[in-house]
Nucleic acid binder design. Structure first.
Lengths: 148, 148
DNA sequence: ATAAAAGTTGAAGTCGACTTCAACGCAAGA
DNA sequence: TCTTGCGTTGAAGTCGACTTCAACTTTTAT
């Protein structure tokens, strides 16, 4: 596969694929002329990378999990820790979600007065203060594609 | 309260408070000499900001929710939408968490072979592809504080 | 009175993950 | 053959949310 095929199949832009290769996250089989040729396993690798990112791992951390060969070489302790962080994040997010819905629905003029809101606020704030784990991908940004 | 008191009470660095004020997210009562003087309500405001951030709102979006006066002026549709995004994110995160735990525990030599892993990978990847909602605060970074 | 501590400013730097750009090479179809 | 178009490169730019810095001015404590 050439780079544009990989891009089409995976949804990952060619520029990103080059970037990932430079970072040692994916490998091309070789070149035909100057052009990269990728094997099918690159798609799977990209899936792994996506999982790692979804888990809040940095590209550096992800690279550590991938053997030069491309198979994975997990740091179980790190994964468990990250899973724990994610679980904690989920808890916080539930509180945030409740807080948002409450703010959206509660017709009270002053949210500051509402004990429910104050409690949720506290949870969200404490979470924010202590800093949470997984910086997720963006939703709002329609950066998905914007080719021509 | 002077800026350092607010910083101490809220855990938000003074530099951030100045930055927030410049961005119009918080307001000081006025100045004594050149120094800002904050009222107690600023703490609550910071809580609101933290909630907004935890919800994945940008500072710009958060500012839209705060009246110049400092009370909140919710865009219920936006909040509901964000809550929905967060709920979706939670779902994805659960899949990611399961994926991580599985990867951490499953002793199989090749995760690529394991159907469970492949499924979770798919979920995570699809989520990553379509981009998710709330970029949470970092956990790993011990940037919490580092005052003196 | 004086020096250390805390406050102020605008400008510039940081960080991660990419994207964009300019300049160029090579290959296949008309 | 020529032109169109994908592919290549390294360098630089982007974005958001801050932080850091240098250069001062003010307080406050001694």
């Amino acid at each position: 596969m050439d780079i544009s095929q990989v891009a089409r199949r995976s949804g990952v832009p060619a520029s990103t694929l080059r970037y990932y290769e430079k970072q040692g996250l994916i490998t091309s089989l070789g070149r035909v002329g100057a052009r990269r040729v990728f094997g099918p396993s690159v798609i799977e690798q990209l899936g792994l990378i996506a999982l790692g990112q979804a888990a809040g791992l940095s590209l550096d951390e992800i690279r550590l999990m991938l053997t030069p060969g491309g198979t994975l070489n997990v740091d179980r302790a790190l994964l468990s820790r990250k899973a724990g962080e994610i679980d904690a994040l989920i808890k916080q997010l539930r509180a945030v979600s409740r807080g948002l819905r409450h703010a959206a629905e509660c017709p009270a003029p002053s949210h500051a007065e509402c004990p429910t809101f104050r409690r949720l606020l506290g949870e969200a704030a404490s979470g924010a203060l202590s800093k949470a784990p997984a910086p997720m991908a963006r939703t709002t940004k329609p950066s998905g594609r914007k080719p021509e």
